[in-house]
Deep mutational scan, measured.
Amino acid sequence: VTLFVALYDYEARTEDDLSFHKGEKFQILNSSEGDWWEARSLTTGETGYIPSNYAAPV
């Protein structure tokens, strides 16, 4: 399992994006889409796309 942590807060701009807060942890589901990764929040259980430059490996 690849775990990442949010470096900044992010507010979803589309219904496919995932809103999150700094410090929140994610499981990365798909990182082959370039700058946007499909991720599941370990806090909320929700799935959506996150900007890859807002996350770092745990």
Rank of each mutant, 00 (worst) to 15 (best):
V1F: 14
V1N: 14
V1T: 13
V1G: 14
V1K: 13
V1Y: 14
V1A: 12
V1C: 15
T2D: 13
T2R: 13
T2I: 14
T2K: 12
T2Y: 11
T2N: 12
T2W: 11
L3G: 04
L3T: 10
L3D: 07
L3Q: 08
F4E: 01
F4N: 02
F4Q: 03
F4G: 04
F4K: 03
V5E: 11
V5G: 01
A6M: 05
A6N: 00
A6V: 04
A6K: 00
A6I: 03
A6C: 04
L7G: 02
L7Q: 05
L7E: 04
L7V: 06
L7A: 03
L7R: 02
L7N: 04
L7K: 05
L7P: 02
L7D: 03
L7M: 08
Y8V: 07
Y8T: 06
Y8S: 07
Y8L: 08
Y8E: 08
D9V: 04
D9M: 03
D9I: 02
D9R: 03
Y10M: 02
Y10S: 02
Y10N: 02
Y10T: 01
Y10A: 01
Y10L: 02
E11L: 10
E11W: 08
E11M: 10
E11I: 13
E11R: 08
A12Y: 02
A12M: 04
A12T: 03
A12E: 03
A12P: 05
A12W: 02
R13Q: 14
R13V: 13
R13Y: 08
R13M: 12
R13T: 13
R13E: 10
R13K: 13
R13A: 11
R13I: 11
T14I: 06
T14M: 11
T14Y: 15
T14H: 15
T14N: 14
T14V: 07
T14G: 15
T14P: 02
T14K: 13
E15P: 14
E15H: 12
E15D: 13
E15S: 13
E15M: 11
D16Q: 14
D16M: 14
D16F: 15
D16E: 13
D16Y: 15
D16R: 15
D16K: 15
D17Y: 14
D17M: 13
D17P: 01
D17I: 11
D17H: 15
D17E: 15
D17L: 09
L18Q: 01
L18R: 01
L18I: 10
L18W: 05
L18Y: 04
L18T: 02
L18N: 01
S19L: 02
S19P: 05
S19V: 03
S19Q: 04
S19Y: 03
S19D: 04
S19H: 07
F20A: 00
F20E: 00
H21K: 15
H21A: 12
H21Y: 11
H21E: 09
H21S: 13
H21G: 07
H21W: 07
H21L: 12
H21R: 14
H21T: 12
H21I: 12
K22F: 05
K22Y: 05
K22I: 08
K22L: 06
K22N: 03
G23L: 02
G23D: 05
G23H: 04
G23V: 00
E24W: 06
E24V: 03
E24L: 03
E24T: 07
E24M: 05
K25A: 07
K25P: 06
K25I: 15
K25R: 12
K25H: 13
K25G: 05
K25Q: 12
K25D: 01
K25N: 07
F26I: 06
F26V: 03
F26R: 00
F26T: 00
F26N: 00
Q27A: 09
Q27V: 15
Q27L: 14
Q27C: 14
Q27P: 00
Q27Y: 14
Q27T: 10
Q27K: 07
Q27G: 02
Q27I: 15
Q27D: 08
I28Q: 00
I28E: 00
I28L: 07
I28S: 01
I28G: 00
I28C: 04
I28H: 00
L29N: 05
L29M: 09
L29Q: 06
L29W: 06
L29S: 06
L29F: 08
L29A: 05
L29R: 05
N30C: 11
N30K: 09
N30H: 08
N30D: 13
N30Y: 07
N30V: 08
N30M: 08
N30G: 10
S31P: 12
S31H: 12
S31Y: 13
S31K: 14
S32T: 13
S32D: 11
S32V: 11
S32W: 11
S32K: 11
S32N: 11
E33F: 12
E33T: 12
E33C: 15
E33I: 11
E33L: 14
E33Q: 14
E33H: 13
G34Q: 11
G34Y: 08
G34P: 14
G34T: 11
G34V: 11
G34S: 13
G34H: 10
G34R: 11
G34I: 10
D35I: 10
D35K: 10
D35C: 14
D35H: 09
W36L: 08
W36T: 06
W36D: 02
W36F: 11
W36Y: 12
W36C: 07
W36R: 15
W36A: 05
W36Q: 07
W36S: 06
W37D: 00
W37I: 09
W37Y: 09
W37M: 09
E38T: 11
E38G: 04
E38C: 15
E38K: 13
E38Q: 13
E38M: 15
A39E: 00
A39L: 01
A39P: 00
A39R: 00
A39Y: 01
R40I: 12
R40T: 12
R40Y: 10
R40V: 11
R40D: 01
R40G: 01
S41H: 07
S41D: 03
S41E: 02
S41N: 13
L42N: 04
L42S: 04
L42A: 05
L42P: 02
L42M: 13
L42I: 10
L42E: 07
L42Q: 07
T43H: 11
T43N: 09
T43G: 06
T43F: 09
T43M: 10
T43I: 09
T43Q: 09
T44S: 10
T44L: 01
T44K: 03
T44G: 02
T44V: 01
G45A: 04
G45M: 07
G45T: 03
G45S: 05
E46G: 07
E46F: 11
E46A: 12
E46W: 08
E46P: 01
T47R: 11
T47L: 09
T47P: 01
T47Q: 09
T47K: 10
T47M: 09
T47F: 08
T47H: 08
G48D: 00
G48M: 03
G48E: 00
G48R: 02
G48H: 02
G48Y: 04
G48I: 03
G48L: 02
Y49P: 01
Y49C: 12
Y49D: 01
I50N: 01
I50W: 00
I50D: 00
I50T: 00
I50M: 05
I50C: 02
P51T: 02
P51W: 06
S52K: 14
S52M: 09
S52N: 07
S52P: 08
S52Q: 08
S52V: 09
S52L: 06
S52Y: 10
N53A: 13
N53F: 11
N53V: 08
N53Y: 12
N53T: 10
N53G: 14
Y54K: 05
Y54I: 07
Y54Q: 05
Y54T: 05
Y54W: 08
Y54A: 15
Y54H: 09
Y54M: 10
Y54V: 06
A55P: 03
A55R: 01
A55E: 02
A55H: 04
A55I: 15
A55C: 15
A55M: 15
A55N: 02
A56Q: 10
A56F: 08
A56H: 08
A56G: 08
P57Q: 08
P57R: 06
P57C: 07
P57D: 05
P57S: 06
P57L: 08
V58K: 04
V58R: 03
V58W: 11
V58I: 13
V58P: 05
V58Q: 08
V58T: 08
V58Y: 11
